[in-house]
């Protein structure tokens, strides 16, 4: 089956794509370097810091092309191959450029039976893209993810590895897209413990503005 063997030129190009960032851009600031040193000191060997440094690099550069991975490896002081291995193992590290906002819709387990796919399909039609794609304006990438540990507030999604937006309905999705289009970040939402609704009246953290009670949500018509 020769068609399994790729053209070597194509293969090389895939492995060593043209760098996106110039050498001048590929530096960590002094403050970032201090952080990295601190992380390195927290483990018996420096290797332990690589995950944190990859996170830092992803926040700074948006994604992790090979030259950025090489930068993190050099900064931590481990072989490039090790850093590359780590960067390619975990799903939250982006090896390819994504949209400005990545919408990770949970369709797993509880979210599935509570309408996670409804939310996913609604977003597909609203943004005019399929799951896995990015809108033409580069604003949104839509992804389907596994359980995010917020099953009591299903269906839910996460915005770009950060904020959780829970108890989704079509209206909430519309509001979220509006907020993001305006360049704002959604508020951190605290999930009330149902038992607290009797005793504390709901919000048990006074430093959190938004909170969401565990109220029943519409049942999705199909469980897919």
């Amino acid at each position: 089956m020769t068609n399994f063997i790729k053209d070597p030129v194509v293969m090389m190009a895939e492995r060593n794509p043209d760098p996106v960032f110039s050498n001048d851009e590929l530096v960590f600031s002094d403050q970032e370097k201090r952080l990295i040193e601190r992380w390195k000191s927290q483990y018996p060997t420096v290797d332990g810091a690589i995950m944190r440094v990859l996170w830092l690099a992803q926040e700074k550069f948006g994604f992790l092309p090979p030259e950025v991975i090489r930068l993190t490896a050099d900064e931590v002081g481990i072989p490039y191959a090790n850093a590359y291995g780590v960067a390619t193992f975990y799903t939250q590290y982006y090896k390819k450029k994504r949209g400005k906002h990545v919408l990770d819709v949970c369709t797993c387990f509880s979210c599935q039976v509570c309408g996670g796919y409804d939310i996913l399909h609604y977003l597909e039609s609203k943004l005019g893209i399929h799951v896995g794609e990015t809108t033409d304006d580069g604003l949104f990438t839509l992804q389907e993810v596994e359980c995010l540990g917020a099953c009591g507030s299903a269906p839910m999604l996460q915005v770009t590895n950060g904020r959780y937006v829970m108890d989704l309905t079509h209206e909430r999705v519309d509001a979220l897209i509006d907020t993001l289009r305006k360049g704002k970040t959604p508020e951190f939402t605290s999930v009330t413990l149902p038992q607290d609704e009797d005793e504390l009246g709901g919000n048990r953290r006074s430093d959190v503005k938004e909170f969401q009670a565990s109220s029943p949500r519409p049942v999705s018509e199909t469980v897919r």
Binding site: S110, V113, C114, C151, G152, A154, P194, S214, S215, P216
Partner: peptide
Amino acid sequence: SGHVNRPG
């Protein structure tokens, strides 16, 4: 979680 009135 799932099809109950007060998940959490």
